[in-house]
């Protein structure tokens, strides 16, 4: 490949996409709507915001969102729940980990529309009445963070790790906590925290 005095354009031709855009067979934009919904518009400008109701930490939140909004951006930019962090936006770091219907997922690759009707739990939903969750306390006791940026994701992931039954050994914890990158490298302390909290979480 020669770079010499070549003229280049970024991006590629999008004509390929002009044909066959969402036609009449397609049903509406809001997630709850189904094909049978007669009131649904046949076609709508996809760039317009759509109504979404997200259930976050036990509360329904009505929002108008661009259909492209991820759960992460919905939480951070629209619900001001900034505990979940953006570290890569591509499912490569785990900083945005939340629970959806009690399963840990990366919220950066989850469309808000697709999460409608599901229960989203974030770091803000863990402490009750200002009492820290045992996993939060364990992270403090074991100094399981430094800069703290990955910590909400680590804690949500750790909670799921225990509930999935993957906290039985150090090796298991290490493997099943590997979806959460900690650049400060607090890993040994994170393992210790998960071990400390596991019995209490399994009890209650």
């Amino acid at each position: 490949m020669s770079e010499n005095s070549s003229s280049r354009r970024s991006g590629f031709d999008r004509r390929a996409f002009v044909a066959g855009v969402a036609g009449s067979a397609l049903v509406p934009l809001t997630a709850r709507a189904v094909a049978q919904d007669a009131k649904a518009p046949a076609a709508q400008d996809p760039a317009l915001p759509v109504d979404v109701t997200l259930r976050v930490n036990g509360k329904d939140k009505r929002l108008q969102l661009d259909a492209r909004t991820t759960v992460l951006d919905a939480l951070r930019e629209h619900l001001k729940l900034t505990g979940s962090k953006k570290g890569c936006d591509h499912g490569q770091c785990g900083a945005c980990t939340v629970l959806i219907d009690d399963r840990r997922v990366v919220s950066c690759l989850t469309l808000a529309l697709a999460a409608e009707g599901q229960e989203i739990t974030t770091i803000e939903g863990l402490a009750t009445n200002d009492r820290l969750h045992p996993m939060q306390q364990a992270f403090i006791d074991n100094d399981a963070f430094q800069c703290g940026y990955c910590t909400p994701g680590q804690i949500m992931s750790a909670l799921a790790c225990v509930k999935e039954g993957h906290a039985g050994s150090d090796a298991d914890i290490r493997e099943y906590m590997s979806g959460n990158i900690c650049r400060c490298a607090a890993y040994p302390n994170i393992v210790a925290a998960v071990k400390q909290a596991a019995p209490e979480i399994m009890k209650g």
Partner: peptide, 21 residues
């Protein structure tokens, strides 16, 4: 002693630049 900012960091209350309203 435990970190001064520990509780903020484990609850998501610690505000980083992009968290600022």
């Amino acid at each position: 002693v435990p970190r001064y900012d520990a509780a903020s960091k484990v609850t998501g209350r610690a505000t980083y630049a992009s968290d600022m309203p």
